[in-house]
Structure formats: C-alpha cells, structure tokens
Design a protein around this nucleic acid. Structure first.
Lengths: 257, 257
DNA sequence: CGACCTATTGAAGGCGTTCAAGTCCAGTGG
DNA sequence: CCACTGGACTTGAACGCCTTCAATAGGTCG
C-alpha cells in the first residue's frame, strides 16, 4: 500500500485492508461487488510523480484509484496549470463515456499509487444485472460535481488567505474520513506549497506568505508536508464556510480529544 | 415555452416540441421514458428572477429543468456570490441524494422557467426496472463534472479577456447545440454584464471594459443581451482553448454560412 | 415623462504577481 | 563525520491586473 495521508496505513489490526473501491460501491449487493472484482483490471502500479493519463487521453472505461494520492489537473496551451481535484483512494479518476468531450484533464500520481480500469462493456453488463451500480455511480459523480463547485467558489470569490485555509480544511476532513483511525489534529499531506498554489490559483510564493500568516496567527500550520490544525474554530471561520454547513462537512470538533 | 436563447422557440415546424428531459435520457428505452413521464411531477412554473431552490435547501429527488435558463450559484456568508453554471433545458439542477453534503448551492431562474422533480423512490424503482437510466444519469453527472472543471480552469488560470471570451463561446456552442435550427452567428443570451461577472469572477465594471475591447478588436460583441460572434477563429484563439480540443467542443466553423 | 435598471467611462488603490536573492533540509558520496 | 547537491521553502521590493468608488449616459416600462 502506498504512503497515504496518515502514518499507520492499516486501520484494521488483523491486516485486513478494506479495498477502497468497495467503499465507492457502498450499498451495492455483495454479488455486484464480486462481479466488479472480477471485471476490473488488476491494479496498475504508478510511481510518485508519474502521469496516469494525460490531458485529452481518456482511458476507455471507468478509471478507479485503488491506492495513493492523485491530482487531476488541466493544462492550457501555454503551460499554465490548474489542479482540479486531489483524489483519494476510492475516487473515480475518469468516467469513460463522455457526451461532449469538453474539458480534457490529466491525472498525475502524488504518491506511489495503484489504479485500475473497469471497461465500458463490463460496466454496461454489470449495470444491467445490478442496477444499483449505475445509480451509485451517478451519486458519486454528483458528489464530485458539488465538490468542484465548491472549488470554483473558492477560486472565484475567496481571498488568498481564505482559499488556502479552505483547501487545508477540506483535505483534512476528507483524509480523516478516509482514515478515521487517527484523532490527532495532524496529518501528512503529500503536497508541496507549489501544489497548493496550483490548486488555489495562487503562486507558490504567495502561498508561502499566507501559510506564514496562518501559522503566526495560530490557526493552521503546514511545514514540510505535515499539516497541523492549531485552532479548528478559527480555521472554519477563516475558511469562510457557513458554520451551519460545516456540520454537514464533518465539522472537526473532536479532533483534539 | 419560456423565452429561450433564440428567437423562434419552435424548432419543429409541426408544433411538436421535443421535451428536453427526453434528450437528457437519450438512449434509454421508450418504456423507461414513459415511466419517467409518469413519475415526474408536473412542471412547476417559475418566473424570471425567482429562486428555484435556495443554497442548502435541497429538493428531495432529481430536479430537472424542463424549460428556460437557470443559474446555479453559491453564496458566501458575507454575500459574495459565484455563478457555477448556466443551465439549459434538459439539465439536472440537483441530484438529490448527496453523500457528504459539502457544497450547498442555489438555483435561480434567469428567464421564465419550468422545473420538475423526479422523486427519490421513483428513481430507485425506475433504475431497477430500467438499468440504463442510472448509468445514463452517471454519464450526465460526469459530463457536468467536466464542465465544472473547465470553469475552474478558466477562473483560476485565464486572464479577464480570456475568461469572458471563453464563457461567451461556451454559451454560444451549448445554446446552438440545444437549438440547432439557427445558423447565424447571433444569439440572445438572457444575461446582464453583471451575470457574466459573477460567472467569471470579475466585477461588472471590468466585464464591461473587456467587452468593449473584444468588440473593438472585432472578435465578439455582446450588447443588450444580444451576442454576436464576429470572428470565430480569433475567438477560439483568445479563449485559450486548445484548437484540437475545440473540435470535440463543437467547433463553430459553420456559423456564418 | 419619470423611475429604475443596465451600461459606460474615469481615477485611485490594493491584492497578488513577478523577479531575485537567499535559507533550510534530506540524501549522496567521500 | 562532513562537504556537496538539488529541491523546497523563505523573504524583500517593484509592478500590474483588476477592484473600488463615483459619476454619467442609455434604454425600457409604468
């Protein structure tokens, strides 16, 4: 298993590792899960930094992230780069059959990662015999859409300080939901400040300045890939999240217990 | 039928009007379409400017846009507003069952509009008897995700000039795909410059300046809700779209024939 | 004709960028 | 153990795109 967001990679003491794609298809019948297990390709191992698929090149089928961190990004002709999403295990990196192939994005591994492919035909057959699979995928895609809307709001309307705070909080909450064993307010993120800049549409230089401020203010620290939540309440405040909504977000009110 | 993006609202001379949600479920069996027609609520009429659902308030089920233009937007606690998407007839405004309710967005009618609701239970049953429906919805949600990624790239990395050009081109292409009867390089958009600003994360004032530039340069004009493509090739160029990708986008190379 | 929204244009200011030095840290090989 | 090396981080100063504030013109509908 690749180096994930936390230190002990094995939540289940018995060594049993819950395959992330089973969480993805949570709620589907065990028979369906078996069919998926048979239909999906064996995990392709990718080294940290490697490209999984390039902008424009679509793998044929549903591309699943089995392990590791991956960034989805888009590239403008002149080289400008925008990180669209930090994908965690269980994410759908690409959903093959696109209607009008408008946006073309690529996927790059941030850590050593494992990806697998569920071919188009397999998905069609699977969906016929187990209809809940298709609906579940629609839910997941809808959830991704919402998260993307959230990023768009951040990049469009929030200040640099708010953007960085918001991203760190989001990553913290998502990573903790993925690996719930750790309760401490610390986390290893496989990111550089430049990555944060590419995701928030800021320069690495400015991200650095903002991080210094946030650390000096005792809100959140990020030093050499280690994230530390110093003051959860003020972090939520700075992030510009409606406190009411923070609950649905998985408000980290118990992170330092 | 509400005032749409073009002047003659009735593409089919016989008066037959293809219900947009049938395009949404394109590829599904006619039996499935009949079931959908029965299950979905009668279209609720909404006046221009009215709110369809507010940020946070989710309608229970799949919310479909039957007619008119609608903007999806998010609202920050202090009132800052970001338009996330301009929805056209056939769009899924909201896909009820969300996993982790992260982003909360609202929907507001730009023109008089008609929306209907496909209740959760109906969707579950429908998906069981007609599995292609779930998969189709997953495709549509995935396509929405891609489009949102495209907007994120625009707001994050493109200059004001590029952003405005890109948005106008996108709206032109999407509207023309929706109402293919018109071949002229003109289109009525039910938008103000302030709307364009809220979508591109610019002030209305600056949008105005950019529009003047683009008009003076003979690239694209937008005056009192009427969009005119003056130079398609240079518009594509300014938009910062990879020309190769513009093809998949539905390159408007025949707009002035 | 008057009220109101939308569009237009100018001037000043700010947030983040760009450019350019540095410093810190981990890994490598002597 | 220590010098060497390269990537990531840090900090300062000047610049620029876009914002903000403010005032005017234009178009539409009662």
């Amino acid at each position: 298993m690749a180096k994930g967001g936390n230190d002990s990679k094995d939540p289940l003491p018995g060594g049993g590792w819950q395959a992330p794609w089973k969480e993805l298809f949570e709620g589907c019948s065990s028979e369906a899960l078996n069919m998926i297990a048979r239909a999906k390709s064996d995990g392709r191992k990718v080294r940290a930094g490697q490209e999984i698929f390039g902008p424009g090149r679509r793998p044929g089928g549903v591309c699943l992230l089995d392990d590791g961190w991956v960034s989805l990004y888009s590239l403008l002709p002149d080289g400008r780069r925008q990180i669209l999403h930090f994908a965690l295990p269980g994410a759908v990196l690409d959903f093959g059959p696109v209607l009008r192939a408008n946006a073309a994005y690529g996927a790059q591994a941030l850590t050593d990662a494992v990806v697998s492919l569920l071919p188009q035909e397999a998905l069609d057959g699977l969906s016929r015999s187990h209809p809940e699979v298709g609906l579940r995928l629609a839910q997941v895609m809808s959830s991704d859409r919402s998260l993307s809307y959230d990023h768009l709001t951040s990049v469009g309307r929030r200040s640099a300080r708010e953007r960085v705070a918001h991203l760190l909080l989001e990553l913290f909450v998502r990573a903790r939901a993925q690996w719930p064993c750790h309760r401490v307010a610390e986390l290893n993120l496989p990111l550089t400040q430049a990555h944060i800049g590419e995701a928030t549409a800021l320069t690495g230089v400015h991200v650095n300045r903002v991080l210094r401020e946030l650390r000096n203010d005792g809100i959140v620290g990020f030093h050499y890939r280690r994230l530390t939540i110093l003051d959860p309440d003020r972090l939520i405040d700075v992030s510009g999240i409606d406190p009411q909504l923070a609950v649905g977000w998985g408000k980290p009110d118990a992170i330092d217990e």
